[in-house]
Design a protein around this nucleic acid. Structure first.
Lengths: 225, 225
DNA sequence: AAATTCTTGTCAATCAATTGACACAGGCCG
DNA sequence: CGGCCTGTGTCAATTGATTGACAAGAATTT
C-alpha cells in the first residue's frame, strides 16, 4: 500500500496547471494536448506528461487531455474537493488581509475563527468573524474540527503557539512567521517567508545588473515557477 | 567575466542562513562550524560548505566561520547592503499590510509610494505615505528612482500594470497577483502565489493522512526549506 | 475499412543538486 | 615549537529532476 513518495517539485507545479486549465475551461476549450499546454505555460510537453503520469493516465492518445476532466482530477489530487476549516492566529494587518481575501473561501478554505493576544482587538468583527482571545484557541480548535492554523504573529511567539496547536491536534500550519517551526512531523507546515522572498528578488536584481553590464543575453518573455 | 550561473536553489537558502547567523550573532556567538550550523538548521554540513563556496571561501580550516563576517558577506551577496526604493500598486488589505510591516524597512526596502485606481482611496495616508492615483505611477517611478514594484492588485489588471511598469524602467516586480507576468527578461519577477502555497499545504495534508493511515513513519522534528 | 495523423505513456539519457570522502591548512595544547 | 586535532574547500559519487525519443493506441480522414 506504499505510495512511491511524490516529489515536492511536482506538487509545486500542480496549482499552476490548475490555474491554466481553469482559464482554458473558462474560454470554453474542451481539449488540450501536452504540447499546446506547454506552449502556453512556457514549459516542456515532456514535463507535463511526466508530472501528470505520476498520478495516473488522464489523457488519451491521439486526442490529448479533456480540460474539464483534468481540472477536476488535479483538484482532487490537491484535496480541493473537500472543505478545510481554518483559524487565523494574529489579527494584525496581514491576518486581516488574509481573512478578507475571498478567493480562499471560494476554494473551500473556510475561516472559522480569529485569535489574538491583544485584549484591545478581541471582540472586534473582521469579515464577519469575531476576534477571540488566545486562551480560547485550544477549545475552539477541538470543538470546531479545525484543520489548518494560519500563523500571522511575530516570530517571538510563533514557536510557542505552534506547540500549543500541535497539542490540540491541528493538522497543518500555514506559517507567515519568520521562524522554522519545530513541530512533530505528522503536522504539515507550509512556510511563507515574505522577507526571504524579497531577499531573493534583491539578489536577482543585483546579479542581473552585474550580468547585464558584462553583456549577458536577454530575451523577450518572462517565466517563473 | 562570465559568472558561472548560480542556481536558484542555492539563492533560496541564503536568507535562511542569514537568519540563523543573525540569531547566533545576537547570542554573542563569534564562531561556528558547518557541522554546528547544520545541526541547528537541520541540514547537512556538506551542503552549507558547498553553498558558501559558491561565493568564495569565507571560512578557515581548523576554525570554522566567523559569524559576524559571514553574516555581512551573505548580506552583501543578497544585495542587502544597499537601499531599495519600492512602490506598492494596489492599496487593498494586502498592500496596506505590507506597507505597515516595518521589518522590510529595517532591511533597506523603503516604501516610497502607494498607487491605486480607486479614487475613493486616493489621498488617504497609509503608514505615512499618501495613496496616489494610477495615472501618476509612471512619472513617480522615473522621478524617484524606484527599483521594485509590489503588485497587490487583482489578476485582471496585473498584466497591464506590469507592462506599464516595464515601460518606465522598473527593475524588479514582487508579484502577489495570481498570474504569470509576461515581462522582458531583464526585469526580475518574484512571485508570491499565496493560493498555490495553500494548495500545496492542502495536498500534503491529504497525502500525509493517507500515508499515516497506511502506517507511514513519523519522527519528532519539523523541517522546511 | 484502410491509411494517416496525432499524441499519450513510458523508458532512457541527460542534466542538476545533494551528499560523502578526504587532503591539507591552520588553530590549539603541552 | 612540534605534534595533534579540527574543520574547511573540493572532488567524486550518488541521488533526483528534467528532457528527449519512440512504440503503440486512438482519432480522423479518405
Amino acid at each position: 500500500m506504499e505510495e512511491k513518495e511524490i516529489s515536492q517539485a511536482v506538487i509545486g507545479r500542480l496549482p499552476r496547471y490548475l490555474r491554466y486549465l481553469g482559464e482554458l475551461k473558462d474560454e470554453g476549450i474542451e481539449r488540450v494536448s501536452s504540447q499546446e499546454l506547454s506552449d502556453i505555460m512556457q514549459t516542456t510537453a515532456s514535463q507535463i506528461r511526466q508530472d501528470l503520469n505520476t498520478f495516473g493516465g488522464f489523457g488519451q492518445q491521439g486526442y490529448g487531455y479533456n480540460v474539464g476532466y483534468l481540472y477536476d482530477e488535479i483538484r482532487k489530487i490537491l484535496g480541493l474537493d473537500r472543505e478545510h476549516r481554518l483559524i487565523i492566529v494574529g489579527a494584525g494587518h496581514l491576518g486581516q488581509a488574509l481573512v478578507n481575501y475571498t478567493n480562499f473561501e471560494r476554494r473551500g478554505f473556510l475561516f472559522r475563527g480569529i485569535f489574538d493576544c491583544d485584549p484591545g482587538i478581541c471582540g472586534k468583527m473582521i469579515h464577519g468573524i469575531e476576534v477571540r482571545p488566545m486562551e480560547e484557541m485550544d477549545g475552539f480548535v477541538r470543538e470546531n474540527d479545525i484543520d489548518i492554523a494560519v500563523l500571522t504573529i511575530p516570530k517571538t511567539s510563533a514557536v510557542e503557539v505552534a506547540k500549543k496547536l500541535a497539542d490540540c491536534g491541528i493538522k497543518g500550519i500555514w506559517n507567515f512567521a519568520h521562524v522554522d517551526l519545530p513541530v512533530p512531523k505528522q503536522i504539515q507546515v507550509e512556510n511563507v517567508h515574505l522577507s526571504d522572498s524579497l531577499m531573493k528578488l534583491s539578489y536577482n536584481l543585483s546579479s542581473s545588473q552585474a550580468e547585464g553590464a558584462a553583456g549577458g543575453k536577454v530575451d523577450g518573455n518572462g517565466q517563473n515557477r
